[in-house]
Design a protein around this nucleic acid. Structure first.
Lengths: 138, 138
DNA sequence: CTCCTAAAAGAGAATGATTCTCATCTAAAT
DNA sequence: ATTTAGATGAGAATCATTCTCTTTTAGGAG
């Protein structure tokens, strides 16, 4: 994900291109495992050693509101952020609280077909996300 | 869910039967829509007007640790609690942040069969929870 | 290039859901 | 009845996150 790509993503959404926003998006795309705000701050502190924590949260909020980033949360951890906007599922380790993206188009299709036939009265489906809870082997 | 049933649930798990625990479990089973700690406190304040907030959180924690209650969390809301321990899915309204339980045994079987054939290297599955995101019609 | 404006950043205070601490109480076993 | 370990109470502490108000700045217009 080049600097130019990141810049385009911001302008496409009508967001101003600020150095802070560029850096935070770069962090999200480069860090693995759904970074927390703190992970992001650590990543960008080389270029932005004095960035305000409040600013990071504000930028993240703007990115989420404008659908460039998703929030990811489990029952036992603080908020994490995900730059993959395409619908995907999560493998969640109940021991370590680690979340792994799980992409499976066959499964997507299976679920889409299932709910196409299923009647959920009064509920309009926008997304279907599977959380597979288990444990990673050592 | 009778008082006796609630008492049995506690003793089965080796938990002491205290009035606070009885009241909190009753609240969870009787309140709808995955009550928050505050909902629970409001419910039991008639019988326990002075219960400490810290105690409620502690009791909830013990109930969760002993698998009598589940935590339920979304990206945009505080922690909620669920007394239905049997595996089930959630319909989540993205506008109102409301969570509805969704029980569907046919779907459970479909998913069990799917992942029985699927190879997830190094991951032992314990539970599969579907979150169907959408909006409730008015 | 300059000017202007609205949005964004900064610094640190505020918030509140939740956890912690330590003393007291009590459920339940004997 | 006594004892003990676990539970509760009261309020302080924690910390992830949001708020507030001032200053800065991106980007559009001329």
């Amino acid at each position: 994900m080049s600097t130019e790509d990141i810049k385009n993503k911001l302008t496409e959404r009508g967001l101003k291109v600020t150095p802070q926003r560029m850096a935070i998006l770069e962090a999200i795309y480069n860090l693995k495992n759904h970074p927390t705000a703190e992970n992001i701050i650590d990543y960008i502190k080389k270029m932005h050693p004095n960035i305000a924590t409040g600013t990071v949260y504000k930028v993240l909020g703007a990115l989420v509101d404008n659908r460039l980033v998703k929030k990811v949360k489990t029952e036992n951890d603080i908020m994490r952020y995900d730059g993959v906007m395409k619908s995907h599922h999560h493998l969640y380790c109940m021991e370590s609280d680690v979340i792994k993206d799980y992409v499976d188009e066959e499964l997507d299709e299976l679920l889409q077909n299932y709910f196409a036939k299923k009647n959920l009265p009064g509920f309009k489906i926008e997304d279907i996300v599977l959380q597979v809870k288990g444990t990673f082997n050592k």
